[in-house]
Design a binder for these strands. Structure first.
Lengths: 119, 119
DNA sequence: TCCATAATTCCATAATTATGGAATTATTGA
DNA sequence: TCAATAATTCCATAATTATGGAATTATGGA
């Protein structure tokens, strides 16, 4: 990933509504969601949502596909992973063991959080 | 990670100089670098660098420790990993296999890139 | 063709952010 | 105490960005 695309992606995500939209789409999976459903879920006016979707789209973080009267937006997982790779690239000069807490994104908490069960 | 800290981190990284500083510190390891060395390496005027270090620091992405006349700044690896976890949280509703290219940041390209050797 | 629905563009206003020279504030060694 | 170096704060200017109602542009069903 080039510095300019990383910057575009970060700027796109650095806004409350867009971050929420993106995370929603990451969660939704490759099929994605229609603009209407996104706006409903997040309570965002259509014009505002359209503006933010365009920003995310320009940054390469989401893509839309027209399907009949609807546009389905979905997360671009490759871009997401590319951004993460860019941020962590060459962490500790490739000696991650020397990095204390580590250069690795922890045990990958993909699933929703679960309350810790007391012993 | 809370939405507000994620937003702060993303906003901090969404700026060319700060992104360069952060990646430089990620690469530098836990010891970090002095302000002077950073400015030298990236060719940034002191006042500008100071401003950006403050932003990164407020966002929790770096920390400075005074040591004699110098301030050593280092990346906060925990914050970095927290941000990544926040972005990928509950990816594909916890069924990453259904996600095509995947919810996982690829084979972890920590080390510097190497040219692929032709077969 | 006409109507209803989906989504985008237009636009003015408001708010936030980056820049870097000059002045200022630490910190240390002599 | 004084001088030298490290880093930050101050400040005015310039530039970018978010908001959402109203108008506009697809798209498909009747």
């Amino acid at each position: 990933m080039e510095v300019q695309s990383a910057l575009a992606a970060l700027a796109a995500l650095a806004q409350e509504t867009r971050l929420a939209v993106f995370r929603h789409l990451v969660e939704a999976g490759p099929e994605g969601m229609t603009v209407g459903r996104i706006g409903e879920a997040l309570q965002v006016p259509a014009a505002t949502l359209s503006f933010h979707l365009k920003e995310l789209s320009h940054a390469g973080l989401v893509t839309g596909r027209q399907e009949s009267r609807f546009i389905w937006y979905s997360a671009n997982y490759e871009a997401m992973n590319g951004l993460i790779a860019y941020l962590t690239e060459n962490c500790c000069r490739g000696q991650p063991d020397a990095c204390g807490v580590g250069c690795t994104p922890a045990p990958k908490s993909t699933a929703a959080k679960r309350k810790k069960v007391p012993a």
